[in-house]
């Protein structure tokens, strides 16, 4: 008796969901095209981009270093806990450096920046949408893409990869100091271990990831904020959605990139 309406409901929900997803995919692609086309208007986005880059760069440095520092320390402690007595100590050097550069630095920084930069972009653009500031910009014949979106996205692409590199380095340093003081590993052993496991590809891999993550935590929140609807609640919804979508995308990309480059 109940089966039919439930099945219908489900089918309708799935249908609606697919339509919405397709709609988003379409609009997102259009936005990407528009952004590429807007690149020619560098006179407009360049000065605003510099402003954004300085703001987001300085603003995010502390939190990114904090997180990577703790990650380095914890990796170091856990390596000690798991391997002491079973493997030679210098392995710790390799494990700490590799896990910081390959995974922890980029991913943790990416997730933190989704909260810091992504949430900010979505809230800013969302507020501008619901208070008609974006309409006002368009009414002046000016393009929101080159005035609002491009400066933010390009600033992110400039600032985030270096931030992640700093995070990698800082995490390794803190891990090293921690390993020295708790495991008693010598500098020579640490460096030997780090070199033994290190391949130049690792750095490239980390850099490539950081560019993808930078694009993720800027473009997705800009898209979501730009398409905000309905008042303060809409801005709240956009901000949450931007952070969640960026985080999930980072984790997905992490898997895909790892499979493609290292798998």
């Amino acid at each position: 008796m109940n089966g039919v309406p439930v099945a219908l409901d489900l089918r309708r929900d799935v249908g609606r969901w697919s339509l919405r997803t397709a709609g988003h995919a379409g609009r997102f692609t259009f936005l990407l095209f528009d952004m590429v086309r807007g690149l020619t208007e560098w006179r407009i986005w360049l000065p605003r981009m510099v402003e954004q880059a300085v703001n987001t760069g300085y603003g995010s440095l502390f939190i990114v270093l904090l997180v990577s520092g703790f990650a380095g320390a914890v990796t170091s402690l856990q390596t000690g806990y798991q391997f002491t007595g079973q493997l030679p100590l210098y392995v710790a050097g390799g494990v700490i450096v590799e896990s910081m550069i390959l995974e922890l630095g980029p991913v943790l920084s990416g997730l933190i920046l989704a909260g810091r930069i992504g949430a900010r972009y979505a809230a800013e653009l969302g507020t501008m949408r619901v208070t008609e500031q974006i309409d006002a910009l368009e009414s002046l014949g000016r393009s929101p893409i080159s005035h609002l979106l491009l400066p933010r996205v390009i600033a992110g692409l400039f600032v985030i990869p270096p931030l992640i590199m700093f995070a990698d380095t800082f995490g390794v340093l803190v891990g090293w100091v921690t390993a020295k003081s708790t495991l008693g590993i010598t500098d020579a052993d640490f460096v030997y271990g780090a070199r033994y496991f290190f391949r130049p590809l690792d750095l490239w891999y980390s850099l490539i990831k950081s560019y993808f993550f930078a694009a993720t935590v800027t473009i997705i929140p800009c898209y979501i904020g730009y398409n905000t609807q309905q008042g303060a609640e809409g801005v709240g919804r956009s901000t949450t959605a931007a952070v969640v979508a960026s985080c999930v995308t980072i984790l997905l990309l992490d898997t895909v990139i790892t499979k493609l480059l290292l798998g």
Partner: peptide
């Protein structure tokens, strides 16, 4: 649009 001025009801200042 660059030849049209529009005064928004709620101002819509940046």
């Amino acid at each position: 649009r660059s030849h049209i001025g529009y005064v928004f009801q709620a101002g819509a200042l940046f």
